[in-house]
Write a protein that binds this DNA or RNA. Sequence first.
DNA 1: TCTGGTTGCGCAATCGATTGCGCAGTTTCA
DNA 2: TGAAACTGCGCAATCGATTGCGCAACCAGA
Lengths: 348, 348
Amino acid sequence: MTVPPRKATIHDIARLSGASPSTVSAALSENWKSRRISEPRVEEIRRIAAEQGYSINMQARGLRQARSGLVGMVIPIHDNRFFSSMSQSFEAFARDRGLVPVIASSMRDRNEELRIVRTLISYAVDYLFIAGATDPEAITALCRTAGLRHVFVDLPGPGAPSVISDNHQGAARLTRQLLADMTGDPTPRGRIYLIGGVATDYATSRRIEGFRDVLAEAGHPPAPEQIIACGYSPLRAKHEITALCDRLGGLPAGLFVNSLTAFEGVLGYLVGLPPEAVEGTAIGCYDYDPFAAYLQFPVHMVRQDSHRLIELAYDLIDREDQTPALYEVEPKLIPPRTIDYGPHGQFG
Amino acid sequence: MTVPPRKATIHDIARLSGASPSTVSAALSENWKSRRISEPRVEEIRRIAAEQGYSINMQARGLRQARSGLVGMVIPIHDNRFFSSMSQSFEAFARDRGLVPVIASSMRDRNEELRIVRTLISYAVDYLFIAGATDPEAITALCRTAGLRHVFVDLPGPGAPSVISDNHQGAARLTRQLLADMTGDPTPRGRIYLIGGVATDYATSRRIEGFRDVLAEAGHPPAPEQIIACGYSPLRAKHEITALCDRLGGLPAGLFVNSLTAFEGVLGYLVGLPPEAVEGTAIGCYDYDPFAAYLQFPVHMVRQDSHRLIELAYDLIDREDQTPALYEVEPKLIPPRTIDYGPHGQFG
DNA sequence: TCTGGTTGCGCAATCGATTGCGCAGTTTCA
DNA sequence: TGAAACTGCGCAATCGATTGCGCAACCAGA
């Protein structure tokens, strides 16, 4: 097969078919009826286009139409079951609308996040979804000057519609479950500790409230040292859990891990312990991973409905009214050692 | 804040600065020196551009320059630690080169895969990476008529450079390890079974060879029924492992699971068993997941070096010579209950 | 003063598709 | 039979940036 000098354009097809570029354009799109191109002509043109392996240049089309057919999404990190299943849903819904998804990860870095938003604006994405935003206000500012519709997911922003999990509810349920599994007295080692997340994040703060409320309800409001919002880094979490256990002289009675990434770090510590050392501890993790659900020890997991989150986000993007508002989706408590295939068994 | 009628263009900046569009273009890019624009002029123009929140229109630039700054990658599925960590690396290398990554998942569907390739061609991606290709020849054909450089990853194609793991080696090592852990006699239940993957896939077939060679070496070449290449679907794998155990009257002595997705299905079955039922079985999985590494029972895992795979793929794309060739990367055997942070602790 | 080089910048074509408008030829209908 | 309506299609402008080429002003040297 000889390599053609360059990709065929609409002009090449026009030349080959004896039609004008306008006619070719119309014939290849759906509006040939409204431009009154005769059906035999259309078929002839399409035949030639197929023969030449013609494919439209979306840059040119986008330039003219002032829309690109791209949808952007920013996520903190790909390599995580929560966010990668969001990506999967995001892509599925994009396809349904004939849009092409562009997903970029910010590594939870504010500047990187803004850089990505600016880049996506340069590519004229038609809509933008931001999951786990670090600086929602700045993002909204950028989007506004570009006239770009955007929706926050997972972490809300004040400047645009936001769809998030009911973090308070999810955390409260998980905490209640862990308390029920705990047997110890309210000595330091008998307490439950929350680890991971960033306290100023909306999501984490709501979870902490849920955690706190349930403990208070149970008569043991948490001491400050019971809440270790040390961020999302696995290594940092490992460090913190190590320090905690050193202080306490062993694992506490309960452990509420605030994200999968933090849980990876915690696991890095637990791996080094004799199996029986973990037995007395009730462990829960906010977010679900099918493998994490079947560890050596039982783990309660909160499964956020990422599919529903994204579905709702797309709904919001479509609404005429882009007034900021908060929409909450119920998460689900998954019992230990349960493989949950989710509402869409086709994934995974 | 009032919404401007539309995004500022280079012409707006030209008008505001009293310069011509060409000058503005040059001033905002790096070639103002070669066009001999005076430095004060450049600074003034940049100031005004910043003031107006100008951002370049990549569609227009791409159209003119016949390149988009996009780099595409097709993966089978996002929601999987192997592929999502590939995505992470893919994105990191793209950033280093000033490219914007576009990652799409084919769900391992041939038609979907081709649709995606065509779409990415329409968007004029500068390069294309295809991981786990279903129909490499067809992809190469499309890319050739578009004059698009592409590289296959994980599953090779005959029409372009390919970088893959040394599947034979990885499978052989894993098999050897499992054999060493097994105690049973070579009765059917005492045997080791390989489950998951598609036998006609290059990767799977090489792994099966590795598996077979090691068993033959040990004096027990596998019977056909010991190789259950039932695809990648978790549900299918669950079904097959269930059927197998029904036939055997329990778990076999060894289990070589051929992918994380199949492992999810297998796990779905194992979850329902009493813990001690699993004790006598040596289990291994091709591909690594940090959580899977610390299940109730020990699992040997093969970790492919996705970072290195991608790095090598980018190298190949740069080469002048795009002759098809196969490059192999060594995978690593991860002992049970080990958290491996990989060569790049920044991820995850 | 004339030539030749340099500086600083603008004109206009170009990339590939879309689209408002208009034009010739044919049909319809009063 | 003439006007109106319809059919089928092409012309040329347009989207926003890049780039080859050229031009005017200035300076230095002969």
